[in-house]
Computed example of a mutant assay.
Amino acid sequence: MTNERSTNFDRRAFLAAGAAFAGAPALAQTELGTTEVERDINEAVVRNISSFRSLDWRPYFDNLNNGAVLVDITSRALHYWSSDESVYKLYPTSVPLTEDLTKKGRTRVVRKVEGPSWRPTPSMKKRNPEWPDHVGPGPDNPLGTHALYLSWTYYRIHGTHDTRKIGRRSSNGCIGLYNEHISELFALTNVGTQVLLI
């Protein structure tokens, strides 16, 4: 019974801290060195979506072996091309809060998990010691319903139950999609699918 109470308390503390964090304005440095202020996540935000457009894969990849995923941090969009070019998908995403949390470059999908568990990274735990060490699959899980694990430690492309995060700088480094979009991308990708973050 004590362990159950402890788990419930930790979960409540985690959710309360997450809600407080989500409610606070987020600051992020743009490429020009100016500060972008993300307003309260509960406010409606009108966005210019002119940069949210379809792209050709050729400037970014030598081939489409195993399919390809391009994540454009600036436009907050994820592009997917199948290996035979019969499928092209474009999804809105959440992106990291700041440049120092953002990793760019080439990687690949190394693992696919439906109903992922979440553990905070050591740096997250240091900043937020009240967060639980583990959150299992379900509606409280920050990774949503599906996760694509990348070859970079701690980096994922995953879903989110908090749909207000999509289209915003709101993550600690991962790329987030609506759960219905990550479910679709999960079915399209393979272990070995190439990924490029720009």
Rank of each mutant, 00 (worst) to 15 (best):
D162E: 12
S50H: 10
L90T: 04
A16T: 06
E31C: 01
E114F: 15
H161I: 01
R47G: 00
N8K: 14
P96E: 06
A44K: 12
D62W: 01
D162I: 10
A68G: 09
G176K: 14
E43M: 06
V87P: 05
K112S: 13
A16V: 07
S117H: 08
E31K: 14
P132W: 00
R168F: 00
P120H: 12
K125Q: 12
R106I: 03
G144Q: 03
F186E: 03
T145I: 02
L177F: 12
E31M: 02
S94I: 00
L150I: 07
R168E: 00
R39I: 08
A44Y: 08
G67A: 08
T30R: 04
G173M: 03
A19H: 11
L101R: 15
G159N: 01
F61L: 05
S54K: 13
R53K: 14
R5Y: 04
F52G: 00
I198D: 04
D140C: 04
P59R: 09
H161M: 03
T34E: 12
R106C: 01
A22Q: 10
F21K: 10
P142T: 13
P129T: 07
E130I: 02
Y88C: 13
S94A: 15
T160C: 06
R169L: 00
V87T: 13
S183A: 14
L32K: 14
P132I: 05
M124E: 11
L196M: 10
A22Y: 09
T7Q: 12
E184D: 15
A44N: 05
I175C: 05
P122M: 02
V37T: 11
A26D: 02
V45K: 12
K126W: 04
Y60C: 09
A28L: 00
G33C: 07
L185V: 04
V195K: 09
P137N: 05
E114I: 11
N190H: 10
R119T: 07
G18K: 10
T74H: 12
I182W: 03
P129Y: 02
N179W: 04
Y80K: 08
S54P: 14
P142I: 05
T30K: 08
V95F: 02
V71D: 06
P120G: 11
